[in-house]
């Protein structure tokens, strides 16, 4: 039945979809904070891609030192001041956007893939497979994500890909639970039963009928989680696991700056504000996306 509707009404579907987008964007605009969040997120993503090229002192990003200018306070020459080896903190913070943002996004993408896979399998096939997978998910949830990620990262050894993997391995259970719940309710829909009655195989039903219908809550959760993943990446950098100095990562920069306080406060404040601002803007944007996809959650 769904096939027939698809083949006859594709133009109508397309225009309905467009109306949906317009309505979604309208809902998103209703909350000014979400728009502010979106604007900052776009700016941050641009910085993550092109930050290196607009940095006023690109040579500092390759580890060049300028000890004569160490600990310069913020000025017209050095907007955010300089650090203990005379590098321009503004340039370093710009370059840090790439590592922090891309790692944070990578963590969520990997966690979503793992979690959705496990959750969909558990929810769709049910019975003992569901029991085993969900009990395992609950088990992973008994450990705080940061602690679990630290332990895994320690076992895997320090490197950026390992840090991303460790965080993703600690992060997937939330997605698994959500995906399972969504699959359980979608599975009972008439169109899925119809597809089954027509003899559709499991793969076809999963990829054509179930997955497309559970993507919006997953996208909302992804966007809400990216901010916290950026925070987690910075946290691991601050602790000293994951990204290592002299790589310009915000958490690492904060960790190094501790010994420069209180006199050289700018070495801590600017990287810290960068983390705060990016987490905040992703959270604002995520709130707006939730309003769009899940109007019931609005207050």
């Amino acid at each position: 039945m769904s096939e027939v509707v698809q083949s006859t009404g594709s133009a109508a579907t397309r225009s309905a979809r467009r109306t949906n987008w317009a309505r979604g964007f309208y809902r998103f605009r209703q909350n000014p904070l979400s728009v502010v969040g979106l604007v900052i997120v776009v700016l941050l993503l641009l910085l993550a891609l092109f930050g290196e090229y607009i940095a006023p002192y690109p040579e500092h990003l390759n580890g060049e030192l300028n000890v004569a200018n160490r600990f310069q306070p913020p000025s017209a020459e050095f907007w955010f001041g300089t650090n203990e080896v005379g590098q321009d903190i503004f340039s370093l913070v710009l370059a840090g956007a790439r590592i922090s943002l891309l790692s944070g996004i990578a963590v969520i993408v990997v966690a979503t893939l793992i979690g959705t896979f496990i959750g969909v399998i558990a929810g769709y096939f049910g019975s003992w497979l569901d029991e085993v997978l969900m009990r395992f998910t609950d088990l992973v949830l008994t450990l705080p994500a940061l602690i679990l990620a630290m332990a895994i990262a320690a076992g895997l050894g320090p490197s950026i890909p390992n840090m991303i993997l460790a965080l993703a391995l600690a992060w997937w259970p939330g997605f698994a639970r959500m995906a399972r719940g969504e699959v359980l309710s979608t599975k009972a829909e008439l169109y899925v039963l119809a597809a089954k009655a027509q003899g559709g195989g499991n793969t076809r039903i999963l990829t054509r009928h179930i997955l497309p219908n559970i993507t919006s809550p997953i996208i909302v959760k992804m966007s809400l989680d990216v901010g916290f993943a950026i925070l987690a990446v910075a946290s691991l950098g601050f602790i000293g696991i994951g990204v290592r100095p002299p790589t310009p990562e915000w958490g690492v920069m904060l960790s190094v700056s501790r010994s420069n306080l209180p006199h050289f406060w700018w070495t801590a404040i600017f990287p810290g504000m960068a983390i705060f601002l990016s987490v905040l803007s992703f959270n604002f944007m995520g709130d707006g996306l939730r309003d769009v996809f899940d109007p019931r959650a609005r207050r």
């Binding site: 925070l231 946290s235 810290g272 987490v279 905040l280 959270n283």
Partner: peptide, 23 residues
């Protein structure tokens, strides 16, 4: 409250140290 939830703890801790402990 929204800002508080986005505040990295290690940064907040450093700022509190800076203000109430050092300054």
């Amino acid at each position: 409250t929204l800002s508080a939830m986005s505040m990295p703890q290690f940064f907040l801790g450093l700022v509190l140290q800076l203000i109430f402990g050092m300054m």
